[in-house]
Structures are given as C-alpha cells and as structure tokens.
Design a binder for these strands. Structure first.
Length: 590
RNA sequence: GGCCCCGUAGUUCAAUGGAUAGAACAAGAGUUUCCUAAACUUUAGAUGCAAGUUCGAUUCUUGCCGGGGCUACCA
C-alpha cells in the first residue's frame, strides 16, 4: 500500500468518526516550497460532505493523522491546505526499498502491444527539420510506452509513388547525365532532392514562357510540357513499364540509403516498413464490405461516401466514381492490413502533423463504424509545424533546414564550446567526435521534446540551440559530474541508514526521485515526452542545489558519505533512464 | 463562411480547477584555496480583451481580438 492510500484510508476514517460523513476521494498535491511539509491534503473538496470551517477540519484531520499514522510527524494548516510533514524514516525506507535504480520506474514489457508510426517521408527529397520533430516525437513516445509496459512496434509508411516522385525521376533523366551517388559523392537522398528542385525550376521557366505566349496562368501550369511528361511517367509506372520501374527502383534505392544514414545519425530505428507502392490499392475490399453493411453508400455517379454528419463532421468520399482509391481508402486498408500482419497489436499511434487533424478524426471514426475492436485505441499524435524566422519551409524552393546539416551544425557548436572549456583534452579524436555528437544531438532532441507537441515551434538556426539552462547538455553535464563523483568514491558498500538524519536538500531529492514511476505512467497515458523532459530538469535542478550546498565525499561521517554517494548514484541512474526513454544519450564525461 | 489548434515576463518554455502563476535565456548584483563554474545564489519583469460557472479560473463555457491550419473525386 502506498502512503497516499494509507492516508486516504485514515482520512476517511477521521471524517467518519469526527463528522459522521463519508468521503469519496481525497485530493493530494505536493507541498509548495514556501510552506513546511511534504505532502498536502486539500480540504476544500470535503466541504461538500462536511459542513464547517476548512481550517478547523484540516486541524482535526491533521491531529488524527499524527496519532494514527507513524509516517506523519507533524502538520500545519494554511487556509484549506493541510500540509503534512513526513518522517525521515519514511523517505529512507523508500530509498532502501528500491533495489536497483537503473530499472526504477520501468514496467516490464507485457503482452499488450501497440504500433507507433512515425517519419513517413516522401522519396523525392531529403529529411528536414519537420521530419526531425516527427521522428523524435514518435520514437520517444514508442520508448515511453515500452517503459510503461507495452510491447511496441515502430513502423513507418513511405510515400514512394506518385507524381512528385516522377518529377525528380524525370528531371534526372533529362538533366542528370547519369549522375549517381557513388560517382558524385552526394548522399543519395540529397542527389534525388536536387533533381526535384531542378524540375520545379525548369517547370517554372516553361510556365513563364507559356504565359508570355498569351496563356492564362492556370492554363500554363496545366499544359507545361514537363508536367505532361511527368504525368505520362506516372501512367507508365502504374502500367508497369519496365524502364520506368527500373529507374524508380534505382532512385528510391539511393534515397533509402540516404535515409538510413540520417536515421542512424539521429539514433532511431524501425521494426517494419510499409510502402505506399504496395498499399495504395488496399482498402477497396474493405469499402465494398462496408457498403454491404451500410456504413457507406453509393451516389448516382458511382462514387462511394461515408456520411458523418451525425457525428458533427461532413460527408467523406472513400472511393472515386471511376472506382479508384483516395488517400482515405488507403489508410483504411493499411490500418486493417497492419492488424493482420501483427495480430497482437491493439491500437496504433500515428505521428503526423496537425494539418491532418481532420483526416485522422474521420479515419478513426470510419474504422470504428466498420466495427473493429481496436479502433478505440487509435491516437493521432498531432504536432505543430516547425517555422523558421524567414517563414514556412518549402522544399521545392529549397528553404528548408536539412536534417543532416542541422545535426552537423549542432555537433560543431558542441565542439567549439567543449574546446573552450578544455575538460576532455585527453580524449582521442574519435572519442571527441562521439562526444560532440552526443551533446549536439542531445541539445537538439531536448529542445524539441520539451515543448508541448501541439504548439508550433519557431526554430532559429542562426541562434542554434543553447547549451545552458533548461537544455539537454545541462542535464548531460550534471550526469557526467555525478559519474565523476562516483569514480572518485570508488566501490561503495551499503551501510545501514538508521543513523542518517536527512538534510533538507536530501529530502527534496528523494521526493523528486519518488515521482519518477508516476511520471512515466502519466507520460505514457498522454503520449507526452515533454512531461519526462520537465521532470528530468527538475530532478537535475534539485541535484545541483544539493551538490552546491552539501559536501558529498567529505561528509561528516561514513554513513552520511555512504548515503550521499548512493543517493547521487540513484539520481544518475534515473537521469539515464529518463533520457533513455526520450532517446537521448548521456556521456560519462564531458 | 464552417470546423480545429495556439495566445503566459523582452525571448523560449512550465503550471491533474488550488496557496503568493514556476524555470531558463537576455539585463543587473554576487559565489570558485573544496567532489567538473556547461554550475550555484540573488534583483527586476507576464496570464490578449470582456463576461459567466466556482469557495477558488492560466486551466472549464460564451463572445470578441490576434496567429496558424483544415474545409479536393491530391497524397
């Protein structure tokens, strides 16, 4: 039984015996720093069943608890807040009860499985800052769910077909002179992306020329020879024309090699891949079944729709009049296919930008209407756009922040700062590179993950990311400093804690540590890496305050020293776990 | 027009309906004979506007004002 449960039981008894009333629930919160106490009982809600002055009620409950609960040593009441002071023994026994802080808060993986989709790139251009936010969110949510006991499959759907892919293929064919990644030394995705930009440039020239000749803008855009040729290429691809398919395979292959390098640099991986070229015909059968059961209906022109007006949404088309699929058709089919492929999953998370909020609302509703029991466990992990000071990122115009460039820049910043500090001069070049990468990436990941996903991020590459204050490197630094203490402390055997009297700072640290398992659970329920990030920062602040105010290695006696070293080790272990679920590494030295 | 999201210090972010709205950066003032100063301590500074619900509202409701998005037989 947790302390909260114990307290709840006793408070209910107190209310029953003192006032003859019965309480449903008791509300707790952490005591604010300005007041004495560790845990606070909010009296106000009790006024519904107990008539009286909140302060008096608080006083009488407090008196009762001190008498009946050994962990409560004293109390004070401010307005309607009953602040309880807990005994040292309570905190120390919590500390003793955790045998291994490196797995503290982690729930062992159970059978309940989820699939998390993220990344979802197009194969006509490299990954950019927007993808980074997507990938970091998706990956850390996958890890958080896993830490909370779920089995998790990480997947992505790759948009590897369509007119936009044909555009870069066509441009390469016309202007490429057989350029290859091997020959040019360019990363495959970069090379292909260049031709996508090239297509747009040439296309714009053609459009301008046509307008010169007297066409309207709309006509010019529709009739430009390059576009017509790209459309023809798409038809050839769909018809299975060997030459086109061959070109498509080759260029996509280059892109995948490039993507893999980027994923490796970011430090993420996937368990499965879905390709749109395989899934774009899926879903039609499911539509036909839904037509029979009355979930969908057919209009006179032959198109098939789903009427969602009763649910406050519009009518949605799910099959064109010519019988071909739309985006929605595919997503319905893909979702169903995934459950077939991986029958143990009972829910999916889609990491996709918030411009598709409506699409997923509709998708989930349709799947529910189709009667799938897992449709209740679908979640759109929706996130805001990443904007630049110059405005929106547009890949066709080349105004994007490239993922690889950004990571390299972050490492370079880490290098500059580290070299100035000169703390790792004894590292060899390879070790240094590794460390700069860890720090630079840590800065980037933390910067993005600490923000509520719903909010837009304004990212200024020029100012780059800070390394001071509430940042990844600050937390990594604290970890490295603790590791240094532990190296100096040597092997520490556990001494009994009975003689230890808790310092205020030690109390605060223990309280913060205690919150970790709950934080993981809440983060998993809310799909929120930001909660973990902010928790970790609070823990680190607490540790730094402890570190500055208390001597660890030079403590007055052996048992104090022993306790402080073990406490530091516990903090380090929790930082490592917390950052682990965010997908951020921590260095032993920096 | 309809629907959705966001508006908190100069800036970037916090705050299960709870106490005097927390941090960080930038600005000012301090702290290193001592375990890594990428640190710590400290001063000043904010809920877009107006109503409502409540013992209590940054949080919930409504209206307005600002920013963004969706509203394709595109994906």
């Amino acid at each position: 039984m947790t302390l909260q449960e114990t307290l709840t039981t006793h408070i209910k008894q107190a209310i029953a015996s003192l006032y003859g009333a019965s309480l449903e629930t008791v509300e707790f919160q952490a005591t604010r720093k300005d007041f004495e106490g560790d845990i606070t009982v909010v009296v106000f809600p009790m006024l519904r069943v107990v008539k009286g002055n909140p302060v008096q009620i608080g006083e009488s409950i407090g008196t009762y608890l001190v008498e009946h609960v050994t962990e409560v040593t004293r109390f004070n009441v401010v307005k309607g807040f009953l602040n309880l002071v807990l005994s040292d023994a309570y905190f120390l026994s919590f500390f003793e009860s955790v045998t291994d802080f490196s797995s503290f808060g982690i729930v062992p993986e159970g059978k309940d499985a989820m699939m998390v989709e993220f990344a979802s790139p197009n194969t006509n251009k490299p990954l950019h800052l927007g993808h980074i936010r997507n990938v970091l969110l998706g990956y850390s949510v996958a890890r958080i769910l896993n830490a909370a006991g779920k089995k998790v499959y990480k997947t992505q759907i790759i948009n590897d077909r369509g007119i936009h892919i044909c555009k870069s293929m066509l441009a390469w064919k016309l202007y490429g002179n057989g350029e290859t990644p091997q020959g040019s030394g360019l990363k495959g995705d970069k090379l292909v992306g260049n031709y996508y930009v090239k297509f747009d440039q040439e296309y714009k020239k053609e459009v301008a020329a046509l307008i010169q000749d007297g066409k309207t803008e709309a006509e010019a855009k529709a009739e430009a020879p390059l576009l017509l040729e790209a459309q023809k290429m798409l038809q050839q691809w769909e018809a299975g024309d060997p030459e086109t398919v061959e070109l498509w395979k080759m260029m996509n292959g280059w892109v995948y090699e490039g993507f893999e390098k980027t994923y490796e640099a970011i430090g993420v991986d996937f368990d499965s891949y879905y390709y749109e070229s395989n899934t774009y015909l899926l879903g039609k059968d499911n539509i036909m079944e839904g037509l029979e059961t009355g979930v969908f209906y057919r209009k006179d022109d032959g198109s098939v729709w789903c009427d969602l007006t009763e649910d406050g949404l519009d009518e949605k088309i799910v099959l064109r009049s010519d019988g071909t699929a739309v985006y929605m058709t595919q997503d319905i089919g893909t979702a169903i296919q995934r459950v077939k492929d991986q029958p143990d999953i009972n829910g999916m998370i889609y990491t996709v930008g918030n411009e598709q909020d409506y699409h997923f609302k509709v998708l989930f509703l349709i799947l529910k209407k189709l009667g799938f029991n897992w449709a209740d466990n679908l979640h759109h992990l929706s996130y805001g756009m990443v904007d630049l000071p110059s405005g929106k990122m547009k890949s066709r115009e080349g105004t994007v922040v490239d993922a690889d460039d950004l990571i390299a820049e972050m490492s370079a910043t880490a290098r500059t700062i580290s070299e100035e500090l000169g703390k790792i001069d004894d590292f060899n070049e390879q070790e240094k590179e590794q460390l700069y990468h860890t720090i630079g990436l840590g800065a980037l990941k933390y910067y993005i993950l600490k923000v509520d996903p719903k909010k837009r991020i304004l990212f200024d590459p020029a100012e780059s990311v800070d390394f001071q204050g509430n940042t990844g490197p600050f937390i990594q630094y604290t970890y490295a400093r603790i590791m240094s203490i532990l190296r100096k402390a040597g092997n520490v055997e556990k001494l009994p804690l009975e003689s230890v009297a808790l310092h205020t700072k030690e109390r605060e640290l223990l309280k913060q540590l205690q919150l970790f398992p709950e934080t993981i659970q809440t983060a998993a329920e809310n799909y929120s890496p930001a909660l973990i990030a902010n928790y970790t920062y609070d823990l680190v602040k607490e540790f730094n305050s402890f570190y500055q105010n208390v001597t660890i290695l030079g403590a007055e006696n052996d048992s104090e020293k022993n306790f402080r070293v073990r406490l530091s080790a516990a903090v380090a272990a929790v930082i490592k776990t917390a950052f682990g679920v965010l997908g951020i590494q921590v260095p032993d030295r920096m």
